[in-house]
Amino acid sequence: MKNYIQPGNSISWTNEDVTGAADVASGDGVVAGSIFGVAKVDIPVGESGELDLVGVFSLAKVSAQAWTYGQRIYFDASTGLATTTAASNKLIGVAVEAAANPSGTGKVRLSAAFTL
Results as ranks from 00 to 15, higher is better:
Thr14Asp: 02
Thr84Val: 04
Gly80Thr: 06
Ala95Asn: 05
Glu16Asp: 13
Thr68His: 01
Lys107Phe: 10
Asn15Met: 03
Tyr74Lys: 07
Gln6Lys: 15
Leu53Glu: 12
Ala87Thr: 12
Gly104Cys: 03
Ser63His: 06
Ser12Tyr: 03
Phe75Val: 02
Leu53Cys: 07
Asn89His: 15
Thr84Asp: 11
Leu51Ser: 09
Val41Lys: 14
Glu47Asn: 11
Thr84Phe: 08
Ala95Gln: 03
Pro102Asn: 02
Ala77Val: 09
Val41Asp: 15
Asn9Ile: 06
Ala112Lys: 15
Ile73Gln: 13
Thr115Arg: 09
Ala64Gly: 11
Leu59Asn: 00
Val94Gly: 00
Thr115Trp: 04
Asp28Tyr: 00
Phe36Thr: 08
Asn101Val: 03
Ile5Met: 09
Ser10Val: 00
Asn101Asp: 14
Asp28Glu: 15
Phe57His: 15
Ser111Val: 01
Gly49Gln: 06
Ser10Trp: 08
Lys61Asp: 06
Ala82Phe: 04
Ser58Glu: 13
Asp76Met: 03
Ile35Gln: 14
Phe75Lys: 01
Ala21Met: 07
Ser88Ala: 13
Asp17Gln: 11
Gly8Phe: 09
Ser48Glu: 15
Asp17Ser: 13
Pro44Val: 01
Val30Met: 07
Tyr74Thr: 07
Gly106Lys: 08
Gly8Ile: 05
Gly27Pro: 08
Gln71Tyr: 06
Asn15His: 09
Ala32Glu: 09
Thr14Pro: 00
Phe75Gln: 03
Tyr69Trp: 11
Arg109Asn: 08
Gly55Thr: 10
Val24Cys: 05
Ser10Tyr: 07
Val24Phe: 06
Ala22Tyr: 02
Ile73Asp: 09
Val45Tyr: 10
Pro44Phe: 07
Val56Met: 09
Lys107Pro: 03
Ala77Ile: 09
Val62Arg: 15
Ala86Ser: 14
Leu116Ser: 00
Thr68Asn: 13
Gly8Asn: 14
Gln6Ser: 11
Gly49His: 05
Val94Glu: 06
Val38Met: 13
Thr84Cys: 03
Ala82Lys: 01
Lys90Met: 04
Gln65Ala: 05
Trp13Gly: 07
Thr14Gly: 02
Thr84Trp: 08
Ser88Arg: 13
Lys2Glu: 10
Leu91Glu: 12
Ala86Tyr: 07
Phe57Cys: 07
Val41Leu: 07
Leu91Tyr: 15
Ala25Ser: 14
Glu50Trp: 03
Asp42Lys: 05
Lys40Glu: 15
Asn15Leu: 04
Ile35Phe: 08
Lys2Pro: 02
